[in-house]
Design a binder for these strands. Structure first.
Lengths: 224, 224
DNA sequence: TTTTTAAATTACATTTTTGTAAGAAAAGAG
DNA sequence: CTCTTTTCTTACAAAAATGTAATTTAAAAA
């Protein structure tokens, strides 16, 4: 499957050169053309890698990078002009995965892109993530992931979703969930589960996941 | 390796019969002989399985069972006299793994013991637990385990310990840990890490784990 | 030894998570 | 349709987790 790279660079000439080069090398390429809503635009593209210029109109590339990292793990390569000191950038730790300097050494860039994509594919997370159909549940980080976006879960939210996910497509009774969640604790109100389910559903909805936890009145819940 | 069963039963005759029978069947057997501090005594034995009579002097077996479950996963078989209704016990969910009725059908008991021990060995948690030498770090539950005791970690405590454990016996700098813990967040005081390390150490100490996180002044920390 | 600096410790304030109460909404029974 | 029951929703209070400030301790340097 072809991989999609998003170019975030305001110099039209450079942008188009890059685009041509990357397309020739077998990538699907998109490029932002306006920069008034950069963070959201980048996240919406759901690309496999972002090439992010540090000097952008309206906002700093550094800021953009940090914002993206709050909700996404997408690999980011930051592009700096020669006069920025790369060492300094590294120490500031914006969360970018790689840095390259302008003007582009196009072969080095290609190597870095391929390196990142391969690395990202390799660590693969097979053991850490449960495939829930429309989204992933990451065990290690306790987050749900969809389209390169992620949302953190609290302990209760995670525990419920984990239990539902290992029983995906099976009916799970409210009692079962309550035993799993609160095992040997004192008596806890039945409604408390409803509230916790509601909170979990709200987070799922933030990722655009509607109706993934289905209520079976009188019987329990099903993760679709 | 031989497995150790702890008998918690106040009728001396029954106790000794059981003991003989289980020893003959290849187990190491211990039995409590006083019941004034049952919960602690059981935990201290660090046995592989507990055979727990529901009618004890001083405290209820039910109470003991719930207390143990709060800090240990040790398999528990609860022993009830015929007049206790097993169904009722089940519904109350004290956290026992199996129930048997008195008088003992000794073959059924043996089957249940073997079943529990095998099950416990099988699920084995290889993928879920990191071996940290003197203790285990359970990824799924986010607890540290030692001698059948467990302590829950908060998100920060877990994240730090996880990072240390995947770098066990390697020196890890404070900056590294801070980047891993707070990645793209706003600037966070250096001392905050000290506090979090302290909290983690306190929990480790509750399990009797002293000095497992070693300070290398000016350099960082090492998980021994 | 004295001084300096890094790390530990303690107490407290803030934020987040969690449970409960009360009422609304929705599904099913009669 | 009306009544009953289950689940959902909202708001609030309690508890737990987390960060900060101030102080102490201890290691290393001078």
């Amino acid at each position: 499957m072809l991989e999609k790279i998003l170019i975030v660079e305001d110099d039209k000439k450079i942008r188009e050169e890059l685009e041509t080069f990357l397309v020739k090398n077998g990538f699907i390429v998109k490029a932002l053309e306006k920069f008034d809503n950069t963070v959201e635009d980048i996240l919406e593209e759901k690309s496999d890698l972002v090439l992010l210029d540090i000097n952008l109109p309206f906002v700093d590339g550094e800021f953009v990078c940090k914002e993206i990292r709050k909700i996404s793990d997408v690999p980011i390569i930051m592009v700096t002009s020669r006069d920025n000191d790369i060492d300094e950038l590294l120490s500031l730790n914006y969360g970018a995965d790689q840095y390259v300097t302008k003007p582009y050494n196009i072969q080095i860039l290609l190597a870095k892109i391929n390196g990142l994509l391969k690395r990202n594919k390799k660590q693969d997370k097979t053991l850490e993530e449960i495939d829930c159909g429309e989204f992933l549940l990451n065990i290690q980080e306790r987050v749900i992931k969809k389209d390169n976006k992620k949302i953190e879960l609290t302990k209760n939210e995670y525990t419920i979703l984990y239990y539902l996910s290992i029983n995906r497509k099976k009916l799970v009774s409210r009692d079962e969930i309550m035993d799993y969640l609160w095992e040997s604790e004192e008596f806890i109100d039945d409604n408390t589960l409803s509230v916790n389910i509601k909170r979990l559903r709200d987070k799922l909805e933030e990722l655009g996941l509607l109706d993934v936890i289905e209520t079976r009145r009188g019987q329990g819940y099903i993760l679709k």
